[in-house]
Design a protein around this nucleic acid. Structure first.
Length: 416
DNA sequence: CTCTGTCCTG
DNA sequence: CAGGACAGAG
C-alpha cells in the first residue's frame, strides 16, 4: 500500500520542517548576510598608518580570522544554525512520525515542549536529509579552506608588491578559490549583491592604502565569505519541502482530481522529494481542498432548496454562477487558469447529490455525506500531461499579484 | 500498526 | 492551511 515502505531509511525519526515555515523564512537570511558584509573590519579603520603596513595587516587579518573562526566554530557546534532563525517555527510534533517517536523516546514525557530539537550536535544531524547535511559539509569545507588561506597569508608580505601574494598561494587568480561553485547563488540575495557592488565601487579610503596584493586577498575573502554564507542559506532553505508553487499546482490539480493517490502525487510532483511527512502534508492539502469544496456544495444545495428549486437537474454550475466564483477564487485565485469543463460537470453533480440528500432528509443521519463522497471519489479525471513538468505552474506564479484582477470569469477574458 | 480521510479547531 | 483526535480499512 505504502509506496514509501522499504524505500525510506528506517531510522528516519522525525520529519524535516513543513513547507510553510521555509516559505516565509526565505527572507530572513538576507539581512543576516548583509549585516556581516556591512561590518567588515576595514570599514572601521580610522587612521591607517602608511608607515606601518604590517601592523595594519596583522590587525585586520587577526580580526578577520577571528570572524571566520567564529563562523566555523558555529558551524561545528550547530550543524544547522541557519535554519534556527525562523524556519522551524512549526517544526515539532507535526508529522506522522510522532507516534512512533513517542514510543521510542520513552524517557521523554509526552508533554515535553516541542521547542528545541535538542543539543545540536548529537541527534540533530541524524535525521536531517542527506542533502542538507551534504551541503552543510561542503560549506564547512569551504570555510576551512578560507581559513587556511588566511593563515597562509598571515606571515605577511615583506613587500606586498603587485602580485607577490598571488604568486605565493595562487589566490591572485580570480577564481582560484572558486572551484566551480559561486554560480550566482549569492546574487540571488539582493542584499548581498548590493553590498558587493557598493564596496567594489566605493572602496573605503583605508582599503586603497593597502598593497594591491592585500587588497586582492581581502576582496577574495569577502567574496568567499558572502558567497559561502549566502549559498548555505539558499541551499538549506531550498526548500526541500513544499513551496507555494507546489500548493498552487496542487490546487489546480484539484480541478481534475479530488482524490489523488499518493503515487499519483509522486508522478505529478517530480521535483519533490517525498517522504512520509511531505506525502501526508500533500494529502492533507487535498483533504482541505475537498473540505472547502463540499462545504460550498452543501451550502449551495441548501440555498437552492430554500429558493424553491425542486428538480436537481436544474442545478448546473455555470461560469457566471456564485458558486463558481467561490470555487475559482479558492483554487485559482489569480484566475490565470482556465477551469476545465469536467470540473464544472463534477461540481454540478456534487451539488445535485447534496440537493437530493438534503431534500430527502438524509442529513439527519450523522454520516449522510459518506455516500456522496463515495460517488464523487469515482469521478476523478485524467490530469493533463503538462502538470507532470516540475516547473509547470512557474509561469502562472508571476501573476500571483494580490491586487485583484477582476473577480470571477471576467479577468481572464478581459485581459486576454 | 500504518495509511487515509474526515471533522473540528486555531 | 496546519494540528490533532478519531475512525475505518488493510
Amino acid at each position: 500500500m505504502d509506496p514509501n515502505a522499504g524505500l525510506l531509511p528506517a531510522p528516519s525519526r522525525a520529519c524535516p520542517q513543513p513547507a510553510e515555515p521555509s516559505m516565509e523564512g526565505r527572507r530572513s537570511p538576507s539581512p543576516r548576510v548583509q549585516g556581516r558584509g556591512a561590518s567588515f573590519p576595514w570599514n572601521q579603520v580610522s587612521n591607517p598608518s602608511l608607515t606601518d603596513p604590517d601592523w595594519f595587516w596583522d590587525e585586520h587579518i587577526q580580526a578577520k580570522r577571528a570572524r571566520v573562526e567564529t563562523i566555523i566554530r558555529g558551524m561545528c557546534l550547530s550543524p544547522n544554525p541557519l535554519v534556527l532563525g525562523g524556519a522551524r517555527a512549526r517544526d515539532g510534533p507535526s508529522c506522522p512520525e510522532k507516534a512512533r517517536e513517542r514510543k521510542r523516546k520513552q524517557d521523554l514525557p509526552m508533554q515535553q515542549p516541542p521547542l528545541k530539537p535538542g543539543p545540536a550536535g548529537s541527534q540533530g544531524s541524524r535525521k536531517r536529509g542527506p542533502r542538507v547535511r551534504e551541503q552543510l559539509r561542503l560549506l564547512k569545507q569551504q570555510l576551512r579552506r578560507l581559513q587556511e588561506h588566511i593563515l597562509q597569508a598571515e606571515p605577511r608580505d615583506p613587500a606586498p608588491g603587485p602580485g607577490s601574494a598571488q604568486r605565493r598561494d595562487g589566490c591572485g587568480r580570480p577564481g582560484a578559490m572558486d572551484s566551480g561553485r559561486h554560480q550566482g547563488s549569492s546574487g540571488d540575495l539582493p542584499g548581498v549583491e548590493e553590498h558587493r557592488v557598493a564596496e567594489v565601487d566605493h572602496q573605503p579610503e583605508e582599503v586603497r592604502f593597502l598593497p594591491s596584493g592585500t587588497r586582492a586577498l581581502l576582496e577574495i575573502l569577502r567574496k568567499e565569505l558572502t558567497g559561502a554564507v549566502s549559498q548555505a542559506v539558499d541551499s538549506v532553505l531550498q526548500k526541500e519541502g513544499l513551496n507555494p508553487g507546489h500548493l498552487k499546482k496542487a490546487k489546480l490539480m484539484f480541478f481534475f482530481t479530488r482524490y489523488p493517490s499518493s503515487s499519483l502525487l509522486k508522478v505529478y510532483f517530480p521535483d519533490v522529494q517525498f517522504n512520509r511527512c511531505i506525502t501526508s502534508q500533500m494529502i492533507k492539502w487535498f483533504s482541505n481542498f475537498r473540505e472547502f469544496y463540499y462545504i460550498q456544495m452543501e451550502k449551495s444545495a441548501r440555498q437552492a432548496i430554500s429558493d424553491g428549486v425542486t428538480n436537481p437537474k436544474m442545478l448546473v454550475i455555470l461560469r457566471d454562477s456564485e458558486l463558481f466564483r467561490a470555487l475559482n477564487m479558492h483554487y485559482n485565485k489569480g484566475n490565470d487558469f482556465e477551469v476545465p469543463d469536467c470540473f464544472l460537470e463534477v461540481a454540478s453533480l456534487t451539488l445535485q447529490e447534496f440537493f437530493r440528500a438534503v431534500s430527502a432528509g438524509k442529513d439527519s443521519d450523522p454520516s449522510w455525506k459518506k455516500p456522496i463522497y463515495k460517488i464523487i471519489s469515482k469521478l476523478d479525471s485524467d490530469i493533463p500531461e503538462i502538470f507532470k513538468s516540475p516547473s509547470y505552474p512557474q509561469e502562472l506564479l508571476r501573476n500571483e499579484d494580490p491586487t485583484e484582477r477582476g473577480a470571477a470569469g471576467q479577468g481572464f477574458l478581459g485581459l486576454s
